[in-house]
Design a protein around this nucleic acid. Structure first.
Lengths: 241, 241
DNA sequence: CAGTGGTCTAGACCACAGA
DNA sequence: CTGTGGTCTAGACCACTGT
């Protein structure tokens, strides 16, 4: 946590979460904060910007900076907010075991859609991976993943049983920089009903995702179908300006 | 569009969308941009930060700033990204008519849940509004909304047939500043099947939302059930730092 | 090494809210 | 008018990349 603004961000965040700055209270003004943290006003602003983006605080010109009400702060009720990617990391609250059952794993020729998403020529070879992920031995999600083997070579079934992202980051030294997600509700099909143990009337939460490396290259395209009652997605939006 | 950084943001955004800066190309470095736009480097950074947040560009220290691949840029496929609130605004691509059928509209006593979300005492009076929204005469979503009548007085059935948010912003001069959303998939119930014209196996996309004014007060709590095939939500996430 | 973005400063002036 | 946040400057130094 090197940069000064991140330290300030964390400190103020902690003070809010520990009720040193209670809900709806006013934070010290920016000038005062520069004295508290011995830094310039721009640095304070950068720290506060992060908190605004998370819905922890809000600012009113001419009045001050205030702690947001509780409900807007709550996060990670069931799963993730803007976690980039990856179940293993998200679910790992220490003792909860995450498992993977590999349903499919082979190379195939990229369809037009997949080629488009991965920015590779049609009919290039791609990994196709289908996994059933379990949390605490309960079926949780079926993932259909396409990966570009040029970028992510050496994937084995062994790795699929654990965390692919850990392999990419630690073994291949790749940096996952961003991801785009499209979220939908969808009726469940036979396969999903079987593996996720759903009734025909029970839907899935579909997440279509493209993952990008830090050089902007898409390295994976995936569609996941989550048990509708074990997944929710939270989002905080605010008006710029 | 007063601030300089917003002008720069828009200009670069336009250049990307019009392919003046094509996909994967490198933008001029920040020093050069300060000369192009006759401003300081911090101002350029603020403009570029906005584009990074939208997934339009990415930066690599030591190398430069690059235009993100197409797929990450695409937005507003069907509906919204981080639109704050409101259907009327979102759907209004000129000629598409938006309609509302008011199913319920009355005052009731706030339940514990609602009181909690709206930050008011249990059993305070709240508006309860149930609307079926139609886009292009097709049923699209059922909204269940609770509003704090202290903050949003004078709502009439007439207003409900049009845009509540327009009323709040124009008549009451309220500023809607932010909103928290929780997204889920859920099986449809009888009411939803009837009004949204769904089969029993077809689900809804549930959006639970709390809307906040610019003074941080929650003014509305709502649960919406969208037709699963007419609503999707997109999100772009990137690693800070 | 040169070129890039990341952080940070110490100010300045403006816009807005409330007394 | 005072106090607040919003924008902006003209630098500085650091960290990282590729040559």
């Amino acid at each position: 946590m090197n940069p000064k603004y991140l330290h300030i961000y964390q400190d103020i965040r902690d003070k809010i979460l520990h009720n040193t700055y209670p809900t709806n209270s006013q934070l010290p003004d920016e000038i005062t904060l520069t004295k508290i943290y011995d830094c310039s006003r721009m640095t304070i602003k950068k720290a506060l910007d992060l908190l605004v983006n998370e819905g922890m605080i809000y600012r009113k010109r001419g009045q001050g900076t205030f702690v947001m009400t509780q409900m807007a702060q709550k996060r990670k009720l069931i799963v993730s907010e803007r976690e980039l990617i990856g179940l293993t990391k998200t679910a790992l609250r220490a003792d909860v075991p995450v498992g993977s059952e590999v349903l499919q794993f082979h190379l195939e020729f990229a369809s037009e859609t997949v080629a488009d998403f991965l920015q590779i020529p049609v009919s290039s070879p791609v990994y196709y991976i289908e996994r059933l992920r379990l949390i605490d031995h309960q079926p949780y999600v079926i993932e259909h993943t396409y990966m570009n083997p040029t970028l992510t070579p050496g994937i084995t079934e062994d790795i699929l049983h654990q965390s692919v992202y850990a392999y990419l980051e630690q073994e291949l030294q790749l940096k996952i920089a961003s991801s785009k997600k499209i979220l939908r509700a969808a009726p469940s099909n036979d396969e999903e009903q079987q593996y996720l143990n759903l009734k025909p009337t029970e839907p899935v939460f579909e997440v279509e995702q493209i993952g990008y490396l830090d050089n902007g290259t898409p390295f994976e395209y995936s569609i996941s179908h989550h048990r509708y009652d074990l997944f929710e997605f939270t989002s905080f939006g605010f008006s710029q300006q």
